[in-house]
Simulated assay, not measured.
Amino acid sequence: MKQAIAARTDLGMGRGKLAAQVAHASLSAYEDASPSTRKAWKGSGQKKVVLKVSGEQAVFDVASEAERLGIPNAVIRDAGHTQLDPGTVTAVAVGPAEDDEVDRVTGDLSLY
């Protein structure tokens, strides 16, 4: 099992901001998963990969495909307290789910 988090490359987020957005996405998608999926993922080491998306539309495309396939997912919008304007879409998480399910949605994305 794994989770993939795709973060936008076009925003120029600093490393700390990127880490925070990835963490928000991971937790939010985890909360979208069923209790049995959460337990299985936690028991298997909570594998995560961080990937690149080029812009806001790509985030929504990933989320739409995950939703269509019934995979837990979450789109993150920034609160706007530091580097970004309020409501800026920053990242999307897909999973936790079986590796092959996550790969069906994110397999063509590059590592961050």
Rank of each mutant, 00 (worst) to 15 (best):
L109W: 09
I71R: 03
R68F: 10
G45Y: 07
A4Y: 06
Q3A: 06
S28E: 11
G107H: 07
T37A: 14
V89L: 11
A25Q: 01
R8N: 10
G70I: 13
H24P: 00
V49I: 14
H81M: 15
L11Q: 06
V92I: 06
A40N: 08
L84S: 04
L111H: 09
A74N: 00
V105S: 02
S34M: 04
V105N: 01
Q3S: 11
A23F: 06
A58M: 05
G70Y: 07
G16K: 10
R68Q: 14
G87E: 05
D61W: 01
H24S: 03
L11N: 05
A20C: 06
E65K: 15
T88W: 13
A29W: 00
E31V: 04
R8H: 06
A97Q: 06
A33G: 05
M13V: 00
G45T: 04
Q57K: 15
H24C: 01
E67A: 12
A29I: 01
K42L: 15
A93Y: 11
D10H: 02
D103L: 15
P86K: 14
L51T: 09
S64H: 08
F60Y: 13
A93H: 09
Q46F: 13
H24F: 13
D78R: 04
A19I: 10
A25W: 02
T88G: 10
G87H: 09
T106P: 02
D108H: 15
A33Q: 02
G45R: 04
A20F: 04
Q3D: 07
V62K: 02
K17W: 08
G12I: 01
T37Y: 00
A74Q: 03
V94F: 08
T9M: 13
Q21P: 03
D61C: 11
L27R: 07
D108S: 14
K48C: 05
A23M: 12
A20N: 03
G12R: 06
Q3L: 15
V102C: 06
T37R: 10
S64V: 07
E98R: 15
K39N: 07
I5W: 03
R104Q: 15
T88F: 14
T9K: 10
K39V: 09
A93D: 09
V102Q: 11
S64K: 14
E101G: 00
K17V: 13
R38Q: 10
I71K: 07
Y112F: 09
E31Y: 07
G43L: 12
L109H: 07
L11I: 11
G80A: 12
G70R: 11
L51H: 08
R38I: 13
I71H: 05
L51P: 04
I71D: 09
A66Y: 10
D78E: 10
S36P: 00
E65L: 15
A4D: 04
N73L: 11
E31D: 10
T9W: 01
A25F: 07
V22T: 10
P72V: 02
V75E: 06
G16Y: 05
K2T: 03
R68G: 12
W41C: 09
G12P: 00
E101P: 00
K2G: 03
N73C: 15
K42M: 14
A7L: 01
V53G: 07
A91L: 13
